[in-house]
Design a protein around this nucleic acid. Structure first.
Length: 289
DNA sequence: ATTTTCTCCTGCATGC
DNA sequence: TGCATGCAGGAGAAAA
């Protein structure tokens, strides 16, 4: 499940293509989250200038020869099962390969997405997706105070939803999905179902710090395993060995050894330790106003 | 206006 | 062996 670290790792993996020119493009007919543009072949002759990441989106800037301004920007979202793999021209197209882009260094980029929750489209057509994204969690402005303000500075009432769905809300902070939400809440000792408005500033400070730390660590691990797995395999490598909460329901808590529990929060499985992450039901006495 | 549920889609694990 | 069922989830749309 690509979250921010996986997208960042994918971005890094595209380095061998930087500066290289597209020689051909091929697509499946399958519809992704959005229909594939029928103008992808206009990429032929353009070179990949840089790859950026915003939230869980990759933005590939393409340049005309001898130009210094980007000509076209391709937007890619990996959805839930998407991956970008680098192969050669002779590599057979697999099932669920939806976009194939050939480069002049004989690398072929395959966008592979069995569940087709992802998307590939022109960035200029994606403002409805990009404009409302919240803050980047690894940038300076994201901290406990930011979370506190977002929880309390809503038009009317404070946010009373479970804190887990708040940190997964891309309008508030981007990049955190089900895995890293579970991990950061576990590390913070916060029950995922805690109403957001019942958390005090100190708890939110911890939570923000742990979100930053877990994402940073996962990026580092992704970077170190990158060279190990043959490009195009999004299951190998990864961060799974070090997960403390996600996917460990029924297994002993690494802190207190009691079995981890699971519950549905906003429709998603949420693993937590009932002892180390006690559920708060009363408002914080201090630090209000 | 905000919050929950539904929906998209396929692969995998489970159960009869 | 095979088929039905359920679950996984990013995130917008629809419903509550």
């Amino acid at each position: 499940m690509p979250e921010l670290p996986e997208v960042e790792t994918t971005k890094t993996s595209l380095a061998p293509l930087l500066g290289h020119t597209i020689t051909w493009v091929n697509t499946s007919q399958k519809r992704l989250r959005e229909p594939l543009p029928d103008t992808l072949d206009t990429l032929v002759g353009l070179s990949l200038g840089q790859v950026r990441r915003r939230a869980k989106y990759l933005l590939l800037d393409f340049y005309q020869p001898h130009s210094h301004a980007p000509d076209k920007t391709l937007l890619i979202h990996l959805g839930m099962s998407g991956s970008l793999g680098q192969f050669t021209k002779s590599t057979p197209i697999r099932k669920h390969d939806h976009v194939m882009i050939g480069f002049d260094n004989d690398i072929t980029l395959h966008y592979h997405d069995p569940r087709r929750f992802g998307m590939v489209m022109w960035a200029k057509d994606a403002s409805s997706y990009l404009d409302k994204l919240g803050i980047e969690p690894l940038e300076e402005g994201f901290d406990g105070e930011y979370l506190y303000n977002r929880i309390w500075q809503t038009p009317k009432r404070p946010i009373t939803r479970p804190i887990k769905s708040v940190i997964m809300e891309q309008k508030i902070v981007v990049g955190v999905g089900n895995i890293y939400a579970a991990e950061s809440l576990f590390l913070s000792g916060i029950h995922p179902a805690t109403p957001a408005n019942l958390l005090n500033q100190e708890q939110l400070n911890h939570l923000a710090a742990h979100i930053k730390a877990i994402l940073t660590k996962a990026i580092e691990v992704g970077g170190s395993t990158l060279k190990d797995f043959s490009v195009g395999d999004n299951q190998t490598g990864y961060f799974q060995q070090t997960l403390l909460a996600y996917g460990r329901a029924g297994n002993p808590c690494t802190i207190c050894h009691l079995p981890l529990e699971t519950m549905q929060i906003s429709g998603r499985a949420s693993v937590f330790c009932p002892s180390c992450q006690p559920l708060i039901t009363t408002p914080p006495i201090s630090l209000k106003n």
